[in-house]
């Protein structure tokens, strides 16, 4: 009964288990460069998922890279500057830092919608960018390197380090997708949709759209922070580009294209974007953004009723 009712059905745990199995098996066969790309895309995919969650509530966040960056820098600072190397402590810190930032910003942003929400979140992420670029102690535009992590005291041999990180990333990302899927199909997820559709009705039912949006912001911040932490651990490096608006724009683009069907879709979408980007940057290093922009424009112009209608549901009551 439940399954037929929900327009978007996430009650498919086996799908997530299958995806995880596939990722883990693929880990053995993929050439290392591709697996590395996949791994970083998994990390970034979580941020795209964070953007997608907000889109459910009708909100477009143009600065989600903020939490990505905060998560990454939290891991980087703790390990490189304070010598904490345990991966679980580091990732937990990344999530906590992002959650706190999300809560703080949520207080400001939860009352805004539409372009105000989009632009204010963009602006805040660019402030962080501006601060980091000027922070010489943190390597300015170059960022800094993150030392290898340990796993409850175990430092894997150099040869298998990449395998271990990959496995960890795959497990955490798929589990996160599953958790988000559960969140979205819960009452909280339904309230998100309700915010996108008719806030007035919600208020007269006694619910608080502002509070719902606040929770969406915080949730999205948390998983994006995890993504940032995973990226820092995967690449052993963080830099301010993580919170640059072109990074955030990529997340928005992927979330828009991925649609509402599955929480895995943004992750896969982000992988494809990274793949295209890798080739595009090889062929035409100064035209990648142009290509991305042109594809975005084409998608919007040619599919006017398609993609956008997925989030533009406001005020049609």
């Amino acid at each position: 009964m439940t399954q037929t009712m929900m327009k978007t059905d996430f009650r498919r745990e086996p799908v997530y288990i299958a995806v995880l199995a596939l990722l883990l098996i693929a880990g053995f066969f993929l050439p290392s460069w591709l697996r590395f790309l996949l791994q970083t895309a998994l990390a970034g995919g979580l941020v795209a998922l964070g953007v997608a969650i907000q889109m459910r509530a009708g909100l477009v966040n143009f600065g989600q890279g903020l939490y990505y960056c905060l998560g990454g820098y939290a891991v980087g600072l703790l390990s490189a500057k304070l010598g904490i190397t345990d991966v679980f402590v580091l990732l937990a810190s990344a999530v906590v830092v992002a959650l706190l930032a999300g809560a703080l910003l949520g207080l400001l942003l939860a009352r805004y919608r539409e372009i105000f929400y989009a632009m204010l979140s963009l602006a805040v992420s660019m402030i962080l960018y501006g601060v980091l670029v000027k922070a010489a102690a943190l390597g300015s535009t170059d960022g800094f390197n993150v030392p290898p992590v340990t796993y409850l005291g175990w430092l894997p041999e150099r040869e298998i380090r990449a395998d271990v990180v990959y496995t960890l990333a795959a497990v955490l990302v798929v589990v996160s997708c599953l958790v988000v899927a559960r969140y979205l199909r819960s009452g909280a997820g339904m309230l998100c949709e309700a915010v996108a559709e008719n806030e007035i009705r919600l208020e007269y039912l006694g619910a608080s759209p502002k509070r719902i949006v606040f929770f969406v912001i915080v949730t999205a911040a948390g998983i994006s922070g995890l993504g940032g932490g995973l990226l820092a651990i995967s690449t052993g490096h963080v830099d301010p580009l993580m919170t640059n608006w072109t990074t955030s724009g990529g997340f928005v683009f992927v979330a828009l294209l991925a649609g509402r069907g599955s929480t895995i879709a943004p992750v896969i979408g982000f992988f494809l974007l990274e793949l295209v980007q890798t080739y595009a940057l090889d062929i035409a290093p100064n035209a990648w953004q142009m290509i991305l922009g042109a594809v975005m424009l084409a998608a919007i112009l040619l599919l006017p009723g398609g993609l956008w209608s997925l989030i533009d549901r406001r005020g049609k009551a």
Binding site: L191, E193, A194, E197, R201
Partner: peptide, 26 residues
């Protein structure tokens, strides 16, 4: 409301469900 205030893209059951959840939230 005079002009019905509902959640247009959702099903009637989902609409009722949201009302239930909102009532719980209260």
């Amino acid at each position: 409301f005079q002009i019905s205030q509902i959640f247009p893209e959702l099903t009637a059951l989902e609409n009722a469900m949201i009302a239930e959840i909102a009532a719980l939230e209260t």
